[in-house]
Simulated scan of single mutants.
Amino acid sequence: MAAVRPGSLITYQLSSVPLQMLFHLSGLYYALYFLATLLMIVYKSQVFSYPSNCLVLDLVLLLLMGIFEVAQLYLGTQGNLTEAEVPLAASLAFTAVSGLLSVHFLLWQTLVLWMDSVLSTVLLVLHGLEAGLQVVVIADFIR
């Protein structure tokens, strides 16, 4: 949707191209993250003495994180393209929840390997960039 600012003859889009590109990058990275984390959980359960209740908890949290990521990316993309604040705000909330789950896999997981730390840190950086851009875009849509 094109917008015209009062007193201006310039028409432009309010939707954010960098945010849209970040959503695509984040979606691709999360697919890699999900697969790598799942394989590492399987590896840790075979090589180390991984308590079964913690194994189930980590698998459930990984699947829950996947659901939040899909919802966050879908709502963020739709909110950005339709220039709607509500889906972007919901996406921002899902980003915060996914960030908290990323912290779990970075710090609080039963066994944290070096690769877990690297993958989770990169995911947290992407979530931070998304959250910052989402706040800016929501502020621009409201104006």
Results as ranks from 00 to 15, higher is better:
11 T>Q: 10
140 D>M: 15
74 Y>V: 15
10 I>F: 11
10 I>S: 09
50 Y>W: 13
27 G>T: 12
49 S>C: 05
123 L>S: 00
96 A>H: 07
110 T>Q: 14
14 L>F: 07
125 V>N: 04
137 V>H: 13
31 A>H: 09
83 E>G: 08
122 V>W: 06
53 N>P: 01
1 M>K: 13
97 V>S: 02
25 L>T: 07
124 L>D: 01
94 F>K: 03
85 E>A: 15
133 L>T: 05
5 R>P: 08
41 I>P: 00
103 V>R: 03
60 V>H: 07
110 T>R: 13
106 L>D: 00
50 Y>M: 12
122 V>A: 01
31 A>T: 12
60 V>Q: 12
37 T>P: 07
72 Q>G: 13
38 L>H: 08
131 A>S: 14
17 V>T: 11
12 Y>M: 10
96 A>P: 13
138 I>N: 14
32 L>G: 03
32 L>N: 00
71 A>R: 01
13 Q>G: 06
97 V>Q: 05
6 P>G: 02
123 L>K: 06
17 V>H: 09
120 S>V: 02
101 L>M: 12
93 A>P: 08
81 L>Q: 13
49 S>Q: 08
141 F>A: 13
121 T>S: 08
134 Q>K: 15
47 V>Q: 00
120 S>N: 00
5 R>T: 08
78 Q>G: 08
3 A>W: 14
50 Y>S: 04
17 V>I: 09
46 Q>S: 05
21 M>G: 02
107 L>D: 06
16 S>G: 06
55 L>M: 10
69 E>G: 06
44 K>I: 08
41 I>V: 02
44 K>M: 14
122 V>P: 01
65 M>K: 10
22 L>Y: 01
28 L>D: 02
136 V>T: 01
